[in-house]
Design a protein around this nucleic acid. Sequence first.
DNA 1: CCTGGAGTTGTCCTA
DNA 2: TTAGGACAACTCCAG
Length: 478
Amino acid sequence: MSTDRPTIVWLRKDLRLKDNPALRAAAAAGPIVPLYIHEENGPARALGAASRWWLHGSLEALASDLEKSGGRLILRRGAAADVLTNLISETNAKGVYWNRVYDTPSMKRDAAVKSRLRDDGLDCRSFNASLLNEPWTVKTTTGSDFRVFSPYWRTAKSLIATPSRQVESPPSLTFVTPRPLSEHLADWALRPRSPDWSEGFAEWTPGEQGAQTRLKAFLSGPLRGYAVNRNYPGEKGVSKLSPHLHFGEIGPRQVWAALHNVAQSESADSLEIFRNELGWREFNYYLLYNNANMPQENLNRSFPSIRWRHNPTEMRAWRRGRTGYPIVDAGLRQLWSSGWMHNRVRMIVASFLVKHLLVDWRKGEAWFWDTLVDADLASNIGNWQWVAGCGADAAPYFRIFNPILQGQKFDPDGHYVRRWSPELARLPNSLIHSPWKGSPSILADAGVNLGHSYPRPIVDHLQARDRALAAYKGLQHA
DNA sequence: CCTGGAGTTGTCCTA
DNA sequence: TTAGGACAACTCCAG
C-alpha cells in the first residue's frame, strides 16, 4: 500500500514533459501529482502583464499534454508552503520533487520548504532543468567567481558534456487517484479582458509543442545565416526561443544537443555565435546568483552616481514609441504590440533611454519586465545594467548608439520601420531613419506630417549625446 | 606576487 | 570612399 503513495512534482519554470529531471525522477518512484502554484505574493517578483499572458497559454498546453497521458495538472493559489502541506495531506504523498529556480528570494524559500518537509519525513529533492551549468559550479582557477563574460564562458563551455547530457522523457506516467481538486485556470485571470491588448500576440504558441516547433524551424532555416542576419530586425534571423526557454517549455540542454546534430561545416560561425547567446543567458543567471542585489543596485560599485532625469512626457513618448527616431519607435511599438523586441533594437532603445534621455536604467527595466513575454529577471537586469554601463563587461561610457546610424546599418531598406510605423511607409529609404531631414514637399508626398502624423525628435541626437558624455564623464569621481 | 593582454554589440574625425 | 585611431581608465584573470 505504501508503495502507491504519490510524489508531488512542483512545476515552476520547467513547464515541459521532456528533459524534465524532477518529473522523470518522480515518475520512476510511482504515481505523481503534477502541481503548479500561482503565488501572487510569493518571494519572486510578481509577473508582468505579458508574462501572465504567456503563462496562461503555457499552463493550458501543459495541462493538455498531461491529459493525453491520462493525468491532470493541479492548479492551486497561495503560499507555496501552505499549498504543499495541504496537498501532501490530501494525497498522502511521500515526497515532493522540483526543478530549481535561481533568484535569491525563491531559493531561500525553497531551502526552507525543503528542510521542513524533510523534517516531516518526506522525500524532498531538487534538480536542474534550466541551466547548462548551475552557478556554483563555475569558478576561476583560483576558486573565485568570474565577472567577465569571455573567461566565464570559456570555462563554462568546457564543463558541458558533448553532446549534452539529457534526461529522457519519462517512459510512462501514472497519476494519483482520486484526482485532487484543481482550480480553474480561467479564474486566475492571467489574460487581459477589457481591453484585450493581446491581439498582436497571435504569432506565439506557448507550450512544449510550440517550443519544439520554434527550435526546428530555427535549425532548418535562420541558423545557417545567424552570425550576420541576427543583426537585422527586419529579417527572420533569430530563434525567438527566449520565452520558451524562460518558462522552461524547452531546456537549454535540449537546444545544446540539437545544435550538436546540425551540419557543422557551413554554419560554424553561426553555431558558435548562437551558443554564445545561450552563454549570455547562463552568465546573467550566474551574475544574479552571485550578486543578489543586482535588481536594485549597480553591479559596478564604483559606477558614478548619475543624476538621472525625470521627465514623464519623455518617458511616455519612449514607452509608446513616439520619440521621433524611427528605429527606436519601431522597436518600442513591436514590444507593445507583440510582447517581444528584436535584440539589436533592444540595445538601441535601451541606450536611447539611458543615454539620450538620461533615465535611470531601472525604469526601462521595469517597462521591459511588464511588456516582454520573455521577461527574465537575470537577463533583463544583466542586460539593462550592461547598457547603462554599470554592469559586467560594461560598455565604455562613450559608446552611445546613434539611432540614425544604427537604423541605416541594420535596417537599410527600412522594412522593420515600415512594418511598425506604417505612417512612415511611403518615405524613401534615404529618409526612413531621419524623416525630419526631408523637404516639405517630399514629406507631403509621403503623407508625413511631422509633429502630427509622426513626432519630431524629442531630443536632438548630438545635443543628447554631448549631455550623456558629460553626465557619464563629469561625475566619475562622485 | 607580478605582469600584461583583453574586454558583446560604437561613433566620429582625420588622413 | 575608406581605414585607422581616439575616446578613459579600470578590472579581470591566466600564466
